[in-house]
Nucleic acid binder design. Structure first.
Lengths: 258, 258
DNA sequence: CGGCCAATTGATTAAACTCAATCTGCGTGG
DNA sequence: CCACGCAGATTGAGTTTAATCAATTGGCCG
């Protein structure tokens, strides 16, 4: 089996994690199988369920198999801020083996399918399969980039720009996991969730969404879907750089293979 | 040499990194020496110098030996947002071995002493010394926590609260590296730097600082120092949890030692 | 048909920004 | 030693943005 065929088979895996890591590194069949086998302990949750609690103990690492989740924090006065949104294939609590206290809350934004993995297994697998270790580190680095972008968004963009920037980011991330069809994004967040992500009131979020609609940038389809009508202009409005999360170049040598 | 004596000697190391890691894991003399030896290539920079450039290539990992640095991003319209502030002992670009493109800019906030380390060396040392690997992962997790707090600060705190929260965080972090003397913090940031960290205009930052002064929470000493007069009230005002960055408990078993 | 959650709209208030001057401390060249 | 220049800090005035308060509407499910 040549490399492109292999890559194809990895991309067809039914594990979102394998598909995602497969876009970053070139996993062997064995590596893909190992990653699959880690995810045997599957849990199903409904919207609103909390599976990691800020300040509580974190005994497992969670792999998102289907659905969306939010990492969030609350001020002492009870206001919620969503730190970042996790999409299928993302990992939460990868650091569980080093710090067994959670520093954020994680909750289901939609119906959720996730697997709870003993964090020691991740360490073990990382030791045995350097490419997986590299992939996981790559993941961590990407999370870092996304958090940086979130900071820029909250600190230096207007409400209008924040929404456009966020939608562009989600578009870009969903695109990579083949979940965009003709500009249609299924976003299982309420406007209040969106507001809590963008540091806005839900009322202001509603009004600014309407402006994006009126400007012909997006079209809201029912309660949980948004069609991006003009991704170029959306990126312009939100000052979002479409090339910000590139795949790893397959020709690029992967260092750190030990 | 018993453990407490060993710990003492590590804490007296002249390398901020060794001191910092030493508060997290119990480093052996050999491990401390290896960490020291990594940092032989020392660079000195002056305020404003950029040593990592967003979008540019990232070929080294930098260890901050003395002085402060900022990770920042710019919007396309040129507005600056400081993502996080790095203090002595912090590491920038630890992911350089996995992603050789920088996703933020790093610049000196003060005169700076840092060492540029070949990222492969970090990988190599991590493989040979599991405790160091654990310490570095711990570092990464802590950076994550700090970024999450920054997000909460920008998204859900008022200008007044943001300043109090940030000062409390800095107090807490400086305290751990023995750089607080009787509440006095040496903060080598201009008010514009502070504003760019907190997502505010420098004018508003100035006014809110004055209010903190008028309320007897802080006292500004010259251009580059702030005395915290009442850390309890400052934490209350900023809704900052003083116990948010605890040291690792020495009795807690370190997993992932292989 | 209610009941409930989410979305929407209007009116008002409050927070933070921008623009426009000063002011101040400090270093430097004359 | 002093005038000058400059960057950073400070203050005032007016404007904009976004939050809050208060209803009302829309859709969906039992």
């Amino acid at each position: 089996m040549d490399q492109s065929t292999l890559r194809l088979s990895v991309m067809q895996s039914n594990s979102a994690l394998v598909r995602k890591l497969g876009t970053m590194t070139l996993l062997s069949k064995e590596e893909a199988a190992v990653l699959e086998s880690l995810q045997s302990n599957i849990v199903r949750l409904k919207r609103g369920d909390v599976f990691i609690s800020d300040g509580g103990s974190l005994s497992a690492t969670f792999v998102l198999r289907a659905g969306w989740a939010a990492r969030s924090l609350k001020t002492k006065s009870g206001r919620r801020q969503i730190i970042s949104v996790a999409l299928p294939g993302d990992i939460l609590g990868l650091h569980a083996s080093f710090r067994r206290t959670a520093t954020y809350t994680a909750e289901a934004l939609s119906e959720l399918e996730l697997s709870a993995v003993d964090p020691i297994q991740f360490l073990d697998v990382s030791r045995r399969f350097p490419l997986i270790a590299a992939g996981l580190s790559w993941f961590t680095a990407r999370e870092f980039t996304i958090l940086g972008d979130q900071t820029l968004r909250l600190g230096r963009l207007s409400a209008h720009q924040r929404i456009a920037h966020f939608l562009a980011e989600i578009y870009s991330r969903l695109e990579k996991i083949e979940e965009v069809e003709d500009g249609l994004l299924t976003i299982p967040m309420t406007q209040t969730d969106l507001a809590d992500t963008l540091g806005l009131s839900h009322i202001h979020t509603n009004r600014e969404l309407r402006k994006l609609r009126e400007n012909g940038l997006i079209e809201v389809q029912g309660r949980r879907a948004v069609r991006i009508l003009d991704i170029e202009r959306l990126c312009d409005v939100g000052m979002f750089d479409r090339d910000r999360y590139p795949e790893i170049a397959l020709s690029e040598p992967l260092t750190g293979s030990g």
